[in-house]
Design a protein around this nucleic acid. Structure first.
Lengths: 255, 255
DNA sequence: AAGTGGTCTAGACCACTCC
DNA sequence: GAGTGGTCTAGACCACTTC
């Protein structure tokens, strides 16, 4: 027989801190300290409700916090169990360039190298699921932080409405924004593919890199709600400046 | 005055499908179809509860589904509003090698090239926050799928207990697993850094690539609960085989 | 049959925002 | 002060798992 509930009454029902949050923190603590080991069952919800003198709904709210944090999982008719930490499944974030740069207290800028109407060649026609020769809007630009070039981009939008290029849209030159301005359809899904490559001659030139220097390539396709492509482009990220970092696991933070 | 509630009574309270789920789907549909535009407010919770004849708690459960899906956000004392889709903030998943390969119906395998005890040099000592010369366990291996080499790995574990290398642990040669077996501390946090590079001579040899072929490099550090490093390693992924794909946005799926 | 988590109700009080 | 979302209660019935 195992004894739970050794911790004193740590729930302060008159506190401004929600009761469910206090209980969630208390359970988290027991997990981090190893009092509740991975695979082990939490006390039943009714027991927790009785012990901490709160309603079962409030207990459930607390547990649902742990579930979404990935600390525990539930099994219908069986119980709630502590998860094993998954340290090898990680996610890398790649956020909007302007947001990311500003977050680092640097000044992002866009240099528009080319903007014109082109006829789609075979490759582009295939990417955008249109006929070769169809007219597309073409953008070529360099994104910089504090005047240091970091990203070189080529973008194509299916050309469906005549509209001038506005100065303002260079404030957000993302493919999804360009597509929403220059297309009839509003973009609703975006696909990005990240790969490793080496800089071509022109890429190296605009990024101030030696030819064949390592780079990240992000190929993006933007679709309308009917899953029809409305924009396609590639972004070349300097390999010497860009790294994607990710942390996973249980941390004693957030108590 | 805007008219909500035009949809007929689509809530079937006797259905096996939970009521909160039905309401969530109904609201999702209105958002996808544009009947509820980004920035626009959802009807107040009390109104929804009255209209669909359910308790407010159930309405809140439905809305909380939309919140965690990123479709809406709430403001205390103000209301619940439809979010703007963020198409340029994406996450790339990089999961456990064995899981990923099996998911693709291929057979993963590990070839252990080297395992021995080494004295830490300056660089390794810095990474593991130990003194140079401290003994570490060193692993060098190639991970393959259907006998095609895909990843080349070098890993170091702080050497704290004498323990034989077991055949079974090559079934999961991840740094976190090796660290948990060969260290006194259990690993609890993992940091991974993804960068683009080109293959060195030895990397190219083991991966069957030309020298200077593009590769992904993942540098991983595993920490114990006190944030002390207990393992460090690098993984070289073939750039011609590995791509990270990500989808974001609103999709009509999941209704 | 007993125990578990999943859903749902019909109220209640609160803090917050806006006018 | 009116309206909003955030929290909480004390019940209830259900489907599921285990014995």
């Amino acid at each position: 027989m195992k004894t739970f509930f050794l911790d004193e009454d740590k729930i302060d029902k008159s506190s401004v801190i929600p009761v469910y949050y206090q209980l969630a923190s208390l359970l988290k603590k027991q997990i981090f300290e190893g009092k509740l080991q991975p695979g082990e069952a939490l006390p039943p919800e009714n027991d927790l409700a009785a012990r901490y003198e709160m309603s079962r709904m409030t207990v459930r709210r607390a547990i649902s916090e742990l579930v979404s944090a990935g600390l525990v999982y539930t099994q219908k008719g069986v119980g709630t169990f502590v998860s094993k930490p998954k340290l090898d499944n990680v996610v890398f974030e790649l956020n909007d360039f302007f947001e990311e740069i500003r977050k680092r207290n640097m000044e992002p800028s866009t240099k528009l190298l080319t903007v014109k109407i082109v006829k789609a060649d075979q490759e582009l026609a295939k990417k955008l699921e249109i006929n070769a020769g169809t007219r597309c809007l073409y953008f070529r630009m360099v994104l910089s932080a504090d005047d240091e070039p970091l990203v070189y981009e080529n973008k194509y939008i299916v050309f469906s409405k005549q509209k001038p290029i506005l100065e303002t849209e260079l404030k957000d030159p993302s493919l999804s924004n360009l597509a929403s301005v220059h297309s009839d359809q509003r973009p609703s899904i975006s696909k990005k593919v990240l790969s490793a490559s080496v800089a071509t001659e022109s890429e190296a030139k605009y990024l101030g890199l030696p030819v064949k220097a390592p780079v990240f390539v992000v190929e993006q396709t933007v679709y309308d709600p009917e899953k029809k492509p409305i924009g396609w482009g590639t972004s070349i990220y300097r390999g010497d400046r860009y790294k994607l970092t990710s942390y996973t696991g249980w941390s004693t933070e957030s108590l």
